[in-house]
Simulated scan of single mutants.
Amino acid sequence: MNMRTVAIVLFIIFVISTAGCATHKDPDPVAPALLRDDIFPSYTLFPVETNREIFALGEDAIKFVNQTQAINHTPKQNISQLARQIFDHAELGLLYRSNANSVAAETFANRAANCLSLSILTYSMARAAGFTPQFYQVDIPEYWTRREGYNLLNGHINLRIAPTQNSQQITLRDVFVDVDFDPQAIRSHFKRVAIDKERVVAMFYNNKGADALLADRYTRAYAYFRAAAKTDPTLGQAWVNLGVLYRKQGEYAAAQQSYQKAIAMDEENLTAWENLAVLYRLSDRQNRADDIQARLRAKRQANPFYHFILGEEALDNGRTKQALSHYRQALKLDRRHHEVLFGLGKAYYALGDISRAEAYLTRAAAMADSAQDKHRYNSKLSALQTAN
């Protein structure tokens, strides 16, 4: 069974701890031919947030930061206290929402954000407290989620907070705190690479562009994807998403160039290859599409989330037995993911097997790391039990 087009690469961001080296920028300017302003001539009507606007904090947020710091504490104690209170629901009341892409000030005010926005807020608060934060991008296996009929590829970043050094101080190397929103990432110890603010800003634009594309606001989406590509031309996901946008406008040549730009930067960008295969099918190049799909299937067979997203897609399209088969394969490959157990619960419910649906929802709730996921699964379970 072929995977339907992975149309958007959406960075949903987390944070973890291992060493890495800084990424290097491509010295070549963005090729003007790849940015097709002529297709979206009114993109300037949608100004994007500036770097300063993305990271700026309001007075309430700065006051919050100051309240976490104590003169009689060590730097590490103060860093730990800051991180703990940022993510303590009792203190800040933050609600995780995957589509809540907001600047730091809005994240603090709205109490709802996705992981990238939380990382930006944390970075800004660490700077306000006088510390030195560092973003990291984590090399995780492909992991998708479903949203509004699209398969979204999720990225992953880290944040390390350390004391700021000066010439009069000697700071121990282990005086730092790594903040992570994903306990699974901590256990897996994935390789990571230090990234600069420019890349994070480009990721933010990429997310905002994905939101606009999902809402069929194509000119706004172009404004953001264009900004992402201009801010960091090495962010392959921005080129893939530009390709998706061009394809949806019937501009197949431009789409192909964008996908090939992403592939030229990273031969293992499977999402770019996936979308290139989709383009080949649409333009009657079936043999080339089949070759790509065969290679992708071979590379992805051992990834449980490949089978999981196929299950999600099948369930969305009413192919419940097929979905069940994909979820079972995902569980066979890795039994640690509560999302897969939830998928099995949904599939069995759709098949009318309430007993098994309840069993898998119970297991999903027990295995979930976050209180929010536990509450979501338990709410589904309660509704199921009440209805029966």
Rank of each mutant, 00 (worst) to 15 (best):
T386R: 14
L242Y: 09
D28Q: 14
W144M: 03
C115V: 03
N101K: 00
H375N: 10
F64L: 05
L159H: 07
E49M: 07
G352C: 02
A289S: 13
S117E: 10
A215S: 15
Q77C: 08
W239Y: 14
L384R: 04
Y150F: 13
A19E: 15
P29V: 03
A33M: 09
R220C: 03
S98K: 11
H73L: 12
Y123T: 01
S124I: 01
L45C: 09
P183D: 11
N206E: 10
I120F: 10
N51A: 06
L341S: 06
A228E: 00
R199G: 02
D60A: 12
L152H: 06
A272Q: 05
D211E: 12
D180V: 03
Q85A: 05
Q260L: 14
V48M: 01
L333H: 09
D211Y: 05
A289G: 08
K374T: 07
V201Y: 03
S124E: 05
G149V: 00
E59N: 03
A314C: 06
G311K: 07
L279M: 04
I8H: 00
A128E: 13
Y150A: 10
I71T: 12
A100V: 02
D180Q: 08
P304G: 08
A22F: 14
G243P: 04
R217F: 06
K25Q: 15
Y348V: 01
G155W: 07
R335F: 05
Y280L: 06
V201I: 15
M1I: 00
Q165D: 13
Q67A: 12
N72E: 14
T74A: 10
T50I: 04
A22D: 14
V30K: 09
S102L: 15
L57I: 08
E313C: 04
A90G: 15
F181W: 14
A129P: 04
I170G: 13
I79Q: 11
K346D: 14
R285P: 00
R160Y: 09
A100M: 06
A228T: 04
G311Q: 06
F204Y: 15
S80A: 15
N207G: 14
F204K: 08
E274V: 00
H337Y: 15
E358D: 12
D37E: 13
L245D: 05
A364M: 04
F55S: 05
T362R: 14
A383I: 00
Y43L: 02
T219C: 09
D28S: 13
G345R: 01
I292C: 06
I13P: 09
L384S: 07
T23N: 13
